[in-house]
Design a protein around this nucleic acid. Structure first.
Length: 302
DNA sequence: CCTCGATTGAAATGTGTCTA
DNA sequence: TAGACACATTTCAATCGAGG
C-alpha cells in the first residue's frame, strides 16, 4: 500500500466515479481501476460496490476513507511543519482529564494554556484514569490531570507534578443546606449524600472522614463523574462535595449553599507527564502557571 | 440497441537495486 | 558508473454490464 493507492481511492470516493476521478487526476480510468483493485487486495476487503453506473463506498470503504483523510491531513501537517519551525503537532495540546476532576477546577488548571502566545489548540479527552494513562503511555496525550499521583500499580513510567491541594466543602440547594447546616458535621448522620465512587481518591477520603466522625449518611447516588453528581445535587437530590477553592464560584454560578467544610482530609491535584522536565509549552503552562495561580488566588476568604 | 462507465489482459514505460 | 534485472505503474484495446 502506498500514498498513490490512497490518493486514487480518496478521489474516487470524493467523486463517486472512477471516470471523474481519472479526469481530476489526469490518468486513464484503467489505471485507477487497477490501483484500486490492488488496494482492495492489500486490505482484503471491497471498498466500493456498484450503484448504477457509479461506485458507492462499502462499510469497509467508509472506514478506509476516514483513515485516508487522516493520513493526508497528517501529510499536509508534515509539509507545513517542515517550513514552520513551530509545528502544528507542537501547537496541539492533547490533555486527558480524569472524570473525577471537578469541571471548574479543570477549567482553572487549563486556563494558562489558553493564554500562551503560540495559541495552542486544547484537545481535551475525559475518562477513567487508567485509560487516560494508557493513552499517555502511547503519547496520544501530552498530559493527564488527575486526583491521584501515578504509582507502580499503573505499570507506566511517568512523572507526577503536584498542582495544589485543598480541603473539601459540602454543598446543597438552599432548602437542603438549611436542614443540615446546624450542628455540622454531626447533622450529616442519615443525610442524603451524593458520593464519589469508592475507588476514587475523594470517595476513599470521604469514607475515612465519615468513619472518623462516626457518621453514617444515607448514600443516594454513587458515581465517578463529578458533573453527574453536581447535576443531581443542583436538582436537590442531596449533598455533594467540591473543592473548597471553588466554593465562591459554586455558590455564585450554581446558587447552591455551603453546609460545612472538611479541612482535615486534603484533596490533591496532579499533572502526570512522561517527561520529568516538561518542554511542551501547554504542559509547562499548566504545571507552572496553574500551580502558582489557582490555589493562591482562588482560596476562599475565611 | 446505444451509450457510458468499469474491468481485464497485454504491452510499454519508469524506477530502484544489484553486480561487474 | 553502466548495464541487467525485477517490479510497479500506466496506457491501449477489447469486453462486460447497467441504464435509457
Amino acid at each position: 500500500m502506498n500514498f498513490k493507492h490512497l490518493r486514487y481511492f480518496l478521489v474516487v470516493a470524493q467523486e463517486g466515479s472512477i471516470n471523474k476521478a481519472s479526469e481530476k487526476l489526469h490518468l486513464t480510468p484503467q489505471t485507477i481501476s487497477g490501483q484500486l483493485k490492488l488496494l482492495e487486495h492489500e486490505l482484503g476487503a471491497r471498498l466500493f460496490r456498484k450503484q448504477g453506473r457509479n461506485l458507492k463506498l462499502t462499510k469497509a470503504g467508509q472506514h478506509a476513507l476516514n483513515y485516508a483523510e487522516d493520513i493526508f491531513l497528517l501529510g499536509d501537517e508534515l509539509k507545513q511543519s517542515i517550513h514552520n519551525p513551530v509545528s502544528l503537532k507542537q501547537q496541539r495540546f492533547n490533555i486527558g482529564i480524569a472524570d473525577v476532576l471537578p469541571k471548574l477546577i479543570t477549567y482553572h488548571l487549563l486556563e494558562p494554556a489558553l493564554n500562551l502566545n503560540d495559541a495552542s489548540r486544547l484537545i481535551c479527552e475525559e475518562g477513567p484514569l487508567p485509560s487516560l494513562l494508557a493513552d499517555l503511555a502511547t503519547q496520544k496525550l501530552d498530559l493527564v490531570l488527575a486526583d491521584r499521583p501515578l504509582d507502580a500499580s499503573f505499570h507506566i513510567r511517568g512523572y507526577n507534578h503536584l498542582l495544589g491541594e485543598c480541603g473539601l466543602s459540602f454543598f446543597a440547594t438552599r432548602n437542603v443546606a438549611a436542614t443540615y447546616r446546624a450542628n455540622f458535621p454531626a447533622s450529616l448522620e442519615g443525610a442524603p449524600m451524593l458520593m464519589p465512587s469508592a475507588d476514587t481518591e475523594r470517595g476513599m477520603g470521604l469514607k475515612r472522614w465519615f468513619e472518623r466522625y462516626k457518621i453514617r449518611p444515607d448514600i443516594r447516588v454513587e458515581c465517578a463523574d463529578t458533573a453527574l453528581i453536581e447535576a443531581f445535587g443542583l436538582s436537590g437530590a442531596g449533598i455533594f462535595c467540591a473543592p473548597t477553592v471553588i466554593e465562591q464560584q459554586m455558590t455564585r454560578q450554581y446558587g447552591v449553599e455551603v453546609i460545612g467544610r472538611m479541612d482535615d482530609i486534603r484533596e490533591r491535584f496532579y499533572a502526570i507527564s512522561l517527561e520529568r522536565r516538561v518542554s511542551h509549552p501547554g504542559v509547562l503552562a499548566v504545571c507552572n502557571a496553574a500551580r502558582m495561580a489557582l490555589f493562591d488566588e482562588l482560596e476562599p476568604p475565611e
